[in-house]
Amino acid sequence: MNALTRKLTAAMPAMLLCASLSGVTTMSYADTSNPNAPVSMIDKWDKTFAESNKVNHRKVSFQNRYGITLVGDLYIPKDRGDRKLAAIAVNGPFGAVKEQSSGLYAQTMAEQGFVTLAFDPSYTGESGGNPRNVASPDINTEDFSAAVDFLGLQTEVDRNRIGILGICGWGGMALNAAAMDTRIKAVATSVMYDMSRAMGHGVGDGKDRYTTADRHAVLQYLNEQRWKDAENGTFAHGGHDIYVDEKGNVTASERILPETLPADPHPVLKEFFDYYRMPRGFHERSVNSTGAWTATTPLSFMNMPLLSYAKEITIPTLIVTGENAHSRYFAEDAYKAVGSKDKALIVVPGANHVDLYDNVAGKIPFSQFKEFFETRLK
């Protein structure tokens, strides 16, 4: 590992969570005349976790307020009978797909008696939107509200008992949605990232990394990329591992997670690699597993803070993080900012960030998620 690479991996910026579908040619739009059509509606079980015999599962699609078609997996307890149940929309981590952590959370919570929906955000996975692999604080917050739209129309769901759960970077989106959408009755996050803060101020060791001068240098770098994209007529990918040296020079990596781990990798890099690049969590449609976002994705996050109205969140709020999670400070600060009088912060002993993606044996506190939603979605 050379000195620059060591600096880049040690800095651990926000977009370590991100990777790309560039070069993947196995997927195509179902309707090539409509760029907002879903990429696919694959019926086979292609998840990174085993299928439960306690729930029924079906593939669904719905549109958000911008006309983008979203594709999701709906999980319903087999013992529902004719009861209308409380429902939970689940998404995340940032750059993941519904076949990974969000699907695991959704299926497990369905086993606990809820109707659940794990869905791919706009521009990613099986959902529509063009160009591919771009994120937006506005549109992705809207995606949560669109999921609430969908759940509220299902015969199995009591629309007055809908909650949302955001994992990793989707934790911040979930809190933003909860501050805006009055139909959401309870919100939970797991190892949350505030992506606006992460992209706009850099992920450090428990604190923001960028100075004001660094922010300006990153913005200048990203806006120069806009000229290149405009000249080329395409959107470049990569460049999210952004490092600003002491002279203000900006360097970005071409991809986030390498094909193989370097010698002596940063521990957090290894966490993500061991999930997204290994059979444990790899999925071909996951941005994190296969490359990078569009290079200019951070721009809108950098000056649109997701948690601006966190103090206006009045609904029950549960924030879960890991004792050893590098993202822990995001969760702790969000907990302080949330205005609800009914809020709780759970720090899972011994857990790192990625433990709460799929470690069902001893890390993900599903019993506490169940108790929270069960009592708050009465």
Rank of each mutant, 00 (worst) to 15 (best):
R159C: 10
G200N: 13
E142N: 06
Q220N: 14
H216K: 13
Y221E: 11
C168H: 06
Y221R: 09
I167D: 01
L151P: 00
G233I: 03
A147E: 01
T212C: 09
V191T: 08
F150Q: 03
L222R: 08
N223R: 15
M180G: 04
M180R: 15
S196I: 14
I164M: 08
L151C: 06
S145N: 05
E142I: 08
T212A: 13
Y193R: 14
G171L: 04
T234E: 12
E156V: 12
R209L: 13
T141Q: 09
C168V: 02
M192S: 11
F144V: 06
R215D: 05
R183V: 10
D214A: 13
N160P: 09
I184G: 00
A177W: 00
Y193A: 11
T212L: 11
E156R: 08
Q154I: 03
A186V: 06
A217W: 04
G169K: 00
T182E: 14
M192F: 05
M192Q: 12
T211G: 09
Q154N: 10
M180I: 10
C168R: 01
R215H: 11
A179W: 01
R183F: 08
A146W: 00
N223V: 12
E231C: 10
L219M: 14
R161A: 06
L151D: 03
Q154M: 13
C168N: 01
I184A: 01
A217H: 04
L151S: 07
V187F: 02
A186K: 00
M180L: 12
A198I: 01
K228H: 15
V187W: 03
M199C: 14
A177K: 07
Q154T: 06
L165M: 13
D143R: 08
A198K: 03
A198L: 11
G233E: 11
D214G: 04
F144Q: 04
Y221N: 12
N223P: 05
L151H: 01
S145V: 02
N223D: 11
N223Y: 13
A186S: 15
W227T: 15
T189Q: 03
A230E: 15
S145T: 10
N176A: 12
E231G: 15
G204P: 05
A179Q: 11
A174K: 04
G204I: 07
L175K: 05
I184N: 01
K185Q: 12
D205S: 15
R161G: 06
H216W: 13
C168D: 07
R197V: 10
Q220G: 12
I162T: 07
N223Q: 15
A217N: 10
T189W: 00
I184Y: 03
G163L: 04
W227H: 14
R197H: 10
N176Y: 04
R161D: 06
Y210N: 06
D143W: 02
I167E: 04
R183I: 08
